[in-house]
Nucleic acid binder design. Structure first.
Length: 1022
RNA sequence: GGGCGAUUAGCUCAGUUGGUUAGAGCGCUGCACUCACAUUGCAGAGGUCACUGGUUCAAAUCCAGUAUCGCCCACCA
């Protein structure tokens, strides 16, 4: 006898917190998350996109990880040996920046006061704290990662992979060092990548000033005028450029404008005309001067750079646009990307005027030591003093800022390390074009290929302390012979001569080199660390222990799918593909699924800096992990990003306060309902921090919470009614119509959910099972089974079908709703340990390891489904009449149905259910049924439902309703008639479509006739 | 500047290869709480599918253009 005492204590509402606390540790103890290579099963592997240890997870992470766990759990149930590899990313610059910021805020200390070791130790502490928090959040979400394999991009296993990769790229000469212009973050004192730079518009000025011409000859201009938004950079100017062919270029511009004007729409013409007039005027005013200057440039003439009194050449270069400004442009190769290119083309010296921390260096002469802004003021003042300053315009400037420190970026010349991309990029492109890697949705392949096509070399060095230090040692003094002697017999050391710097670059594969590794010489190690993406690029194989040849790597690599967001397709996905191909000779994954982005109610991305970010922990506390997961899966459609309006929840009265662009950046917000105040993430002052915190939540998860609760209660009903359950096969003839209907639908739904998940159609899977569980299982099957459970004879079969159907629904939902399904599974196992209709199965000890349902296609029965649909139609008609006639719920009514005899035969077996589902009793079925004298009526296709309510009926209401119905039907009939009267349609449309329309017309006409006849009767009786 | 995507009910979204009277959830209206569930049930109202053209017997769906919004990439002395 099963112990079912727990049934008395089941709460009416699903207690998500209790279930989560109970089952996650259980799964862990059972070792279900852990995977080992198993030759008897196929592997299914996902590596987590490692979250940055900079902070806690946000809702985007919750979505990303939910989608991964859904696949992992499903595949595990399908019998794959599943590995979900978890881990975190050290996120070099981002993490160092937050820790430095904290250090300064809390202790007023800079990293220089702590030193490299001290700071790195602090960052490890930070990492430990946040890694714990991140992994904790994943566990709370129910993620079934193999925690025993947890990796960190900076741990020894990953470090070894980084060293080996760097070494082999260096050996193949795919890594080089060069003096290049980089985006310099003067605050963090490091180069940052292009993608770590954002632009912000700020008000600024556009200064026009002039440089004197040296050795002036008669008829020549005394000065050359140039303009800039950054006048202090003139200290680093090494030339002024003018276009080599201003005549043709200007003519070209004018011709182009004329062409455009000819074909432009009227509303753009005035602007174009203005532009053309300006260009033509310029031909008169500027061109002669530009030609003269060009000739002077070709003659090698020089200008005097004021303030620092340096002679600089006038050069001819196409970068100077004759149609813009004065037509001349100052060239500062060390501090501007375009000027840098000009500098290379014209072999100009590159004068760096900046110190790493953003002050001016000795090259700036009298301005040495000043900050950029101070120098700017001083330079402007000096130029004015010397009468060289012309006009000053106000101008809005798009200023580059560092994403990490939020301070302005300075273009800066520095020694940097690069990975040569031409060949590597090509391999990554080929992998996608020949479909070894498939990107889903497909449109993102364009993003991927477009970026790779540029094949821009990848700058991989960062002047940071937190990261993989570049394994290069420098030696300027040794000879090649000495190196050969020192590293004789070692194939883990290679060296090249750096001609630019006149020194040896020595790279070693694994062990660090000692200072005195080359006798008689001192080696110094490169201080820079590698770009974070360098280690992330190796993630799919480094986590499996590469370069070590081990069983896990062989078994799990390549992984099965990568699930990520679109903003890192180029940064990460492309680099993983090329690194995987380079290191392992195989793509890292055959599929890349790009999921939607979660936006707020204004259509903006969520971020901490906007204050609209939702913390998954808050969502789970309010709705439960199951609801969050289901809600996220439900919105994951292929086509679209998703808007999720967010609200503050008042901690005093739980009222929801709409988030506006205004209040979401305030440190405190007042509740509109209870007037209580609460703090937000912006609270910094003690008086704000003292207030209770108002979490940012979204009501979008409510429907999922309701669904979970519905399931919980349906399960509760089933459990409470399985008393005396005896397992056993059910003979086919014992199945009722509703049994066969639900089993048919169950087979279809099982197939649909399985197919949807295989195609990454999460929303389809979620919607399908939601509709089935709620609208078919709960609303019909459970309701209908109630009466059968009351009777001894029908009870056993009813119980078996009920248990089996619930069992299958639970398994279909488990990947999305893991905790609730396990909770019910365990209870169901106690009462009904063996389940099934034809063949019996012992319930698995956990739903996590239960087999994924197979669609029982033999049970799919269109006829039964059609029969059931008829029943549902009539039931709905009866309910509608009840409702619109305001019949009290407990009052029993009678109805009759005029229909074909065959229709009557279909529905009659289900006749008793009209009583339990609509408190209604059928008095007659068939073609001979006559309309009662006074009736409420619903007309269906070939079917009329009558309720004789004699003196209770609200005749007036029925007349109005019927009139509306007749009007509507008349319109439809007219529409159809028109369509069929169109010879074109009848001739050209496929016969089947035409026939369909004819049938529809006939049907509508009969409905109309029926409705009219009822209406007439009602009018007569009035 | 280049590319990608979106625009369907008050809100958030579905809508297969063009083909019945365009759907769901929330919200709204009415009715109903001993009987699994009020986080519920039953019923109802609510849409010129952004706009303008085109293709077609037939367009929410295909094509072109316009408008608005979002995202990515590049660039701006």
């Amino acid at each position: 006898m099963a112990d079912d005492s727990f049934l008395n204590d089941l709460p009416k509402q699903y207690d998500h917190a209790a279930a989560q606390e109970k089952w996650y540790p259980f799964w862990e103890e059972q070792g279900y998350f852990h995977s080992e290579p198993n030759p008897d099963r196929k592997p299914y592997t996902i590596v987590i996109p490692p979250p940055n240890v900079t902070g806690a997870l946000h809702l985007g992470h919750a979505l990303n990880n939910t989608l991964q766990d859904i696949l992992i759990r499903q595949k595990r149930m399908q019998g794959f040996e599943t590995l979900w590899m978890p881990g975190t990313d050290h996120a070099g610059i981002a993490t160092q920046a937050v820790v430095e910021k904290r250090l300064f805020l809390d202790e007023k200390k800079t990293r220089h006061e702590l030193g490299r070791e001290g700071l790195v130790a602090r960052i490890w502490q930070w990492k430990d704290a946040y890694e714990k928090r991140i992994l904790g959040q994943l566990k709370e979400m129910g993620c079934s990662c193999d925690w025993q394999r947890t990796r960190f991009t900076l741990d020894p296993v990953c470090a070894r992979a980084v060293r080996h990769t760097f070494f082999s790229l260096f050996k193949e000469k795919l890594i080089y060092r060069g003096n290049r212009l980089v985006n310099w973050d003067t605050h963090l004192q490091t180069a940052v990548a292009d993608d770590e730079v954002f632009h912000e518009t700020v008000p600024g000025h556009f200064w026009h000033f002039r440089y004197p011409v040296i050795d002036l000859e008669p008829g020549e201009p005394t000065h050359v005028t140039i303009a800039t938004t950054r006048p202090e950079t003139m200290l680093g100017d090494t030339a002024v450029a003018v276009h080599p062919d201003p005549e043709t270029t200007l003519e070209g511009v004018i011709a182009g404008l004329k062409d455009r004007l000819a074909s432009a729409p009227a509303k753009e013409k005035p602007d174009l005309e203005k532009e053309l007039a300006a260009a033509e005027k310029r031909r008169e005013t500027h061109l002669p001067l530009l030609i003269q200057l060009r000739d002077m440039a070709k003659a090698g003439r020089k200008l005097m750079l004021p303030l620092v009194n340096r002679e600089i050449p006038l050069v001819a270069d196409e970068w100077a646009k004759p149609e813009l400004g004065s037509g001349c442009v100052k060239i500062t190769p060390a501090h501007d990307p375009n000027d840098y290119e000009v500098g290379l083309r014209c072999a100009l010296p590159m004068v760096n005027i900046l110190n790493p921390e953003g002050t001016l260096n000795a090259n700036a002469g009298p301005y040495e030591g000043m900050t950029i802004l101070d120098a700017r003021k001083a330079v402007v003042a000096s130029l004015e003093e010397q009468g060289l300053m012309m006009e000053v315009e106000d101008r809005i400037i798009e200023l580059a800022h560092s994403d990490r420190s939020k301070t302005p970026i300075e273009p800066y010349l520095a020694d940097q390390w690069f990975v040569k991309m031409d060949h590597l990029a090509q391999t990554a492109m080929d992998a996608v074009t020949d479909h070894r890697v498939r990107i889903i949705p497909e449109r993102y392949t364009k993003t991927y290929l477009d970026w790779l096509r540029e094949k821009r070399d990848w700058p991989v060095s960062r002047q940071l302390w937190w990261g993989h230090q570049i394994p290069i040692w420098y030696c300027a003094t040794a000879t090649e012979k000495e190196l050969e002697a020192a590293f004789a017999g070692r194939d883990d050391v290679v060296w090249y001569r750096d001609e630019e710097q006149d020194q040896w670059l020595i790279c070693v594969e694994e062990e660090d080199l000692a200072e005195d590794a080359v006798p008689g010489h001192t080696l110094t190690r490169e201080q820079d660390v590698l770009d974070t993406w360098f280690s992330s690029a190796l993630w799919p194989h480094s986590t499996l222990g590469w370069p070590e040849e081990n069983e896990a790597l062989k078994y799990y690599y390549p992984t099965s799918v990568l699930i990520t967001s679109r903003d890192i397709i180029s940064l990460w996905v492309a680099r993983m593909v090329l690194a995987g191909l380079h290191n392992c000779g195989e793509v890292p994954f055959p599929d890349v699924y790009i999921h939607p982005k979660i936006l707020d109610g204004y259509g903006e991305g969520m971020s901490k800096s906007k204050g609209n970010g939702v913390d998954p922990i808050d969502v789970m506390e309010k709705f439960g992990a199951d609801s969050m997961r289901f809600g996220l899966a439900y919105i994951t459609t292929e086509s679209q990003d998703v808007r999720m309006p967010v609200e503050f929840e008042c901690p005093h009265c739980q009222a929801l306060i709409e988030q506006t662009k205004k209040n979401r950046v305030q440190p405190r917000v007042k509740c509109k309902k209870c007037d209580g105040e609460f703090s937000t993430q912006w609270a910094e002052k003690p008086e704000d921090k003292a207030l209770p915190r108002g979490p940012v939540v979204s009501e979008r998860f409510e429907f999922a919470r309701n669904f979970c609760n519905k399931l919980w209660n349906a399960s509760r009903f089933a459990l409470m009614n399985l008393e005396g359950y005896v397992p056993g096969p059910v003979p086919e003839e014992d199945l009722t119509v509703e049994d066969r209907w639900i089993l048919s639908r169950l087979a279809t739904v099982t197939a649909q959910v399985t197919d949807a998940l295989a195609a990454y159609k999460y929303a389809d899977a979620a919607r399908t099972v939601y509709d089935f569980a709620w609208n078919e299982f709960c609303s019909f099957f459970v309701e209908m089974v109630k009466t059968r459970l009351q009777e001894e004879t029908s009870r056993p079969v009813a119980q078996r079908v009920l248990a089996h159907t619930l069992d299958t629904i639970l398994r279909l939902l488990h990947p999305m709703i893991p905790f609730l399904t396990e909770e019910v599974w365990q209870m169901l196992g106690k009462i009904a340990p063996q389940r099934g209709i034809a063949a019996l199965c012992d319930a698995a000890p956990s739903i996590m390891v239960a087999p994924w349902p197979e669609a029982d296609t033999e049970r799919q029965d269109d006829q039964i489904e059609a029969q059931f649909a008829c029943f549902q139609d009539v039931l709905k008609a009866v309910r509608e009449i009840r409702s619109r006639q305001n019949v009290p719920p407990k009052k029993e009514i009678e109805f009759s149905v005029r229909c074909e005899a065959s229709y009557a035969d279909l529905v009659r077996p289900l006749e008793p259910y009209f009583l339990s589902l609509a408190t209604a009793r059928a008095t007659g079925w068939g073609p001979e049924i006559a309309a009662p004298a006074l009736s409420a009526n619903v007309t269906l296709t070939g079917v009329e439902v009558f309720v004789d309510l004699a003196d209770l009926i609200d005749v007036e209401a029925e007349i109005t309703r019927k009139e509306d119905e007749v009007g509507k039907l008349e319109k439809l009939v007219a529409g159809k008639k028109g369509k069929l009267a169109n010879a074109n349609f009848v001739e050209r449309a496929p016969e089947a479509v035409v026939q369909k329309e004819r049938d529809a017309l006939a049907d509508l006409e009969s409905q109309l006739a029926a409705a009219q006849s009822v209406l007439e009767k009602l009018r007569d009786r009035k």
